[in-house]
Write a protein that binds this DNA or RNA. Structure first.
Length: 276
DNA sequence: AGCTCATGGCGAG
DNA sequence: TCGCCCTGAGCTG
């Protein structure tokens, strides 16, 4: 679930459901109970996302700061709410809607200073209109680190997770282990604009779909696929299956403790490109 | 009932 | 680089 598009969607659905009206704030599971009591019954001022961070603003420049981590989820549903199911860390509710947060790595009540500090530490977010891709390029273009690493580094570029990383690299035929400095600026710009488009689509659909129409299984005369994560993708979690473009088996590996997927033919290494 | 895994990120060594 | 935190689903036995 949680890459930048999920948080962006959440910010708007939470705003739609709760902004401008008093909201009941509770913590059925208990861990957020003390902080919940401090804002319980106050109106939500606004909700906002930046990268994978979510902020729900309350009067007096107080913010509930949420980071879903790997397994967190925040479900916004029409109300009224029933008894909480499972470990609900935070529940927001009014007469018409409720939202349950589970499994988040972070859920804290923070000041505007902390809010600003978190935002200040993030690289540009493709989903924010004010983002400047050249800020990310300033680091990528002189780094020896693999581009696959840099794209997931939230200080370099915010909101991209493992799926968007794998897919944008595939779409631009870039091997994940290529050092950032071996990319050309035009290549990075193209990847950035692609992320802007893909992630905005993700915000609208709530899924990650990256396969161009001409490469869908239907267009290629193959049986339709079912992806566990709910979107159509080229390489993410498709290890051992044929590449949708060239038929080569999709490869997998690990980079900084995270799963990596790529097509060795469509995404040649820098060295073999130079030789070829 | 108990394991393993997941679209993250942190701190210890 | 490793272990750990958060939770639930999907296995295995």
């Amino acid at each position: 679930m949680p890459e930048g598009h999920t948080l962006h969607r959440l910010a708007s659905s939470l705003g739609d459901a709760f902004a401008g009206r008093p909201v009941r704030v509770s913590s059925p599971q208990g861990r957020f109970a003390a902080d919940a009591a401090l804002v319980d019954g106050h109106p939500v001022v606004a909700s906002e996302s930046a990268g994978k961070h979510l902020f729900i603003e309350f009067p007096g420049e107080r913010f509930i700061h949420v980071h879903l981590g790997l397994i967190g989820r925040f479900d916004v549903r029409p109300g009224p709410a029933g008894a909480p199911v499972g470990e609900v860390r935070l529940r927001l509710q009014n007469e018409t809607a409720y939202a349950d947060l589970r499994g988040a790595t972070q859920c804290d009540l923070v000041s505007v200073e902390r809010h600003d500090q978190i935002l200040g530490a993030l690289g540009p977010d493709p989903l924010r209109a004010d983002a400047d891709p050249m800020v990310a390029w300033a680091r990528i273009g002189r780094s020896n680190r693999p581009i696959g690493d840099l794209l997931m580094d939230q200080k370099v570029l915010a909101g991209v997770g493992n799926i968007y990383r794998a897919e944008v690299l595939f779409r631009h035929r870039v091997h994940p282990l290529r050092p950032g400095k071996t990319l050309r600026v035009g290549q990075f710009r193209a990847m950035w604009h692609d992320l802007v488009m893909l992630m905005h689509e993700g915000v609208l659909s709530g899924r990650i779909d990256t396969v161009r129409p001409e490469h869908t299984p239907e267009a290629m005369g193959r049986p339709p696929r079912v992806d566990g994560h709910g979107g159509e993708v080229y390489v993410y979690r498709r290890a051992g299956q044929p590449c949708l473009v060239c038929g080569t088996k999709v490869r997998t590996g690990e980079l900084s403790g995270r799963n990596l997927f790529w097509c060795s033919r469509c995404q040649p290494t820098f060295r073999s490109r130079a030789v070829r």
